[in-house]
């Protein structure tokens, strides 16, 4: 379920002054939807560790979802500094997750790990060439990443149930170089992009205690969003 979060408000109330300050000239806004694949090495290890622990108890947990590639959404507010160079703000949202499950006649174990992140940063776009209405561009996106991991473990045996859940957070940075092509149709434009984001994150820590971090295989775990990115965006020039 979509929830209004604090940083959404910051984005909205930060965007409005910017637009007014520039009097909307040379500004364009793009909404992009794409797909990202995420490395999530530590969290894969976390799944393996949980499966191994339960297997030692004789319970054959199985990962029915395993941090798959999933949709990403992104809003970009760009301004032409020169005819071939744009710079702007970018806000990106992405999510993925995993599920470990086992059930028989007597009960079930359901472990859901939901992880998402908000990435806010700057995006630089260089127009490499113009071929009529098509522009070929390269870009470099720098962003701060705010990751959330929600873990829930629900065990039900006959009529008795036990649920345990907690949330972890971490911050990091990401750098995403890529290329794109944009078709300009009057004020509207449609772009396709392909890139790769490399992320550097701090360890995931509990919300109640930042010193308490998630450890997997005796090391601090991170939410590693690194991976290739593709997307399609629709822009509007003011």
């Amino acid at each position: 379920m979509m929830k209004m979060k604090f940083y959404h408000l910051i984005f909205v109330f930060g965007l409005v002054p910017i637009l007014y300050a520039n009097n909307f000239s040379q500004l364009s806004i793009r909404a992009s939807i794409g797909q990202g694949s995420y490395k999530m090495t530590d969290l894969h290890d976390l799944l393996d560790e949980i499966i191994g622990d339960y297997a030692a108890e004789g319970i054959a947990l199985e990962a029915t979802s395993d941090f798959p590639a999933y949709y990403t959404t992104q809003i970009q507010l760009l301004k032409y500094i020169t005819p071939k160079y744009q710079i702007g703000l970018v806000w990106q949202h992405r999510s993925t997750g995993a599920r470990l499950h086992y059930s028989d006649y007597s009960g079930s174990i359901l472990i859901d790990i939901f992880v998402n992140s908000e990435a806010a940063g700057f995006k630089n776009i260089w127009t490499v060439s113009n071929r009529g209405k098509l522009k070929f561009e390269s870009y470099l996106q720098l962003s701060g990443i705010f990751s959330n991991l929600h873990f829930s473990n629900e065990i039900t045996v006959f009529d008795e149930g036990l649920k345990d859940e907690f949330t972890l957070k971490s911050i990091g940075i990401g750098i995403e170089p890529g290329i794109s092509t944009t078709a300009v149709l009057s004020r509207l434009s449609i772009s396709l992009n392909l890139g790769f984001q490399q992320c550097f994150s701090r360890p995931l820590h509990f919300t109640s205690n930042k010193e308490a971090t998630l450890r997997v295989h005796n090391r601090e775990a991170t939410a590693d969003w690194s991976g290739p990115r593709t997307g399609v965006s629709v822009g509007f020039s003011f």
Binding site: M1, M2, K3, M4, H8, F11, V12, L15, V16, A31, I33, A60, L61, E62, T64, S65, P68, Y70, Y71, T72, T73, Q74, I75, W91, H93, S95, T96, G97, A98, R99, H101, Y102, S103, D104, D112, I113, F114, N116
Partner: peptide, 21 residues
């Protein structure tokens, strides 16, 4: 702005699948 927020949060992932024995 409202549409942007809706857009950003419109595709939230949900883990799925069962393993019944």
């Amino acid at each position: 702005s409202a549409l942007t927020i809706i857009f950003l949060n419109g595709c939230e992932y949900t883990p799925t699948g069962t393993n019944h024995r």
